[in-house]
């Protein structure tokens, strides 16, 4: 009997955490109901899953947790549509459906022995958190060179995972640069937009990969900066976010050219995207 890719795995919502000050992003911690369930869900940073609120529908979200954090999955979800709104309203203890893991993942094998620059803006930081956490795991940290994270948001209240950022700040394993768009009360860190900050920090492209996720404007203006720093299309990696339904390359809406973001992506190198039409 073939596996039915449409059936979700029931998981328990153990935490519904309001992540940002504007309350529009919640982080959901889901617990596997059994060990078998957990085994049936082997994933890697960069993959996503379809979360479903029974009775409302399902929607795709990048997995924010790392496979190095067993027992749970984490998703940070912005309130935009029917499903995300319903998720936001969910009480802890409820059952949520999860279908996945779906899509490809960050090419961590290629990163081995190399420096990694992670650039994230706004709430597109979810799978980047997964990636950073994965690479920083004591068992793996040695595989990679220098890890630099440049992360910005419009204001300090909109930064995700504030506790972890604080821990990273203190950690010698990772070089974290956080920034906000404008001066804000109580913010002593950097102020400036990601492209500018990236230019200032100027991470070396030498033996390095850059992974960049964020709103389209941020990407648009950061790309030339990365190019100038010497990152090639082959070493620049992005994650796309087209509208998806099936997640398995059948329903037809997330294609960019002949590629399905859900099945062939969402992770693409700049080089791969250069070959595709700009329908994303």
């Amino acid at each position: 009997m073939m596996k039915n890719p449409y059936l979700p795995l029931p998981m328990k919502l153990v935490k519904n955490f309001t992540e940002t000050e504007d309350k529009l992003i919640h982080t959901f911690t889901l617990q596997f109901l059994s060990e078998e369930d957990e085994k049936s869900f082997p994933y890697m940073p960069g993959q996503f899953a379809e979360l479903c609120v029974f009775g409302k529908g399902e929607a795709p979200f990048g997995i924010a947790s790392s496979p190095t954090e067993p027992g749970f999955l984490k998703f940070s979800v912005a309130k935009v549509g029917t499903v995300s709104t319903a998720l936001h309203m969910m009480e802890e203890g409820s059952i949520v459906g999860v279908r996945g893991p779906l899509g490809n993942y960050y090419p961590v094998d290629q990163f081995k022995g190399k420096n990694v620059v992670i650039i994230g803006g706004g709430f597109a930081f979810t799978t980047l958190r997964s990636l950073a956490t994965y690479m920083m795991h004591p068992d793996r940290r040695g595989d990679f060179g220098k890890i630099t994270v440049i992360y910005g948001a419009r204001n300090p209240g909109l930064l995700l995972y504030k506790d972890e950022l604080a821990a990273w700040e203190a950690s010698p394993d990772i070089d974290l640069i956080t920034t906000v768009d404008r001066e804000a009360e109580g913010w002593n860190g950097r102020v400036g937009f990601i492209p500018a900050v990236t230019g200032e920090v100027a991470p070396s492209a030498e033996n390095a990969h850059a992974i960049i996720c964020g709103p389209p404007v941020m990407i648009k203006f950061t790309m030339p900066v990365l190019e100038k720093l010497g990152f090639t299309p082959e070493t620049t990696i992005m994650s796309l976010e087209n509208r998806m339904k099936c997640g398995i390359g059948m329903c037809g809406r997330c294609n960019v050219g002949g590629k399905y973001v859900c099945k062939d992506g969402p992770i693409f190198t700049r080089a791969q995207l250069n070959e595709l039409p700009n329908e994303y």
């Binding site: 029974f54 529908g57 399902e58 099936c246 329903c251």
Partner: peptide
């Protein structure tokens, strides 16, 4: 091409796919 929707009352119902 198709769409996937829920046809449900509260938490009981079915997931349906429709041509899109």
């Amino acid at each position: 091409c198709f769409d996937i929707v829920d046809d449900a009352v509260d938490c009981t119902g079915c997931r349906v796919r429709n041509w899109d």
